[in-house]
Amino acid sequence: MPVIAIPALIRNLTDGEDSVTVEGATIREVINSLEDQYPGTKAKLCDGDRIHPSIGVYINGVLTRVAMHDPVDTDAELHFLPAISGGGGSS
């Protein structure tokens, strides 16, 4: 089952757990599953029915631009980190 790494600042909502195993086959389902286990978490990660624009989602270590309906592998590890825009090298 997918694992969500819990951002440090919301571990107060997960009894200090830094990672939580969740159910679900899409981003929406895994976030809802997390919310079921630890109420209040979804509001931190989402802005309505989308990932909060200030958050970047990493799937298995890779920053991935996902929408709520995107599928999640059963062995995926998800991180929700501050979204950061790239800067500019010159290329």
Binding site: G86, G87, G88, G89, S90, S91
Partner: peptide
């Protein structure tokens, strides 16, 4: 998207 973030090449 922008030419930035070392993304273009």
């Amino acid at each position: 998207a922008v030419t930035g973030g070392s993304r273009t090449t």
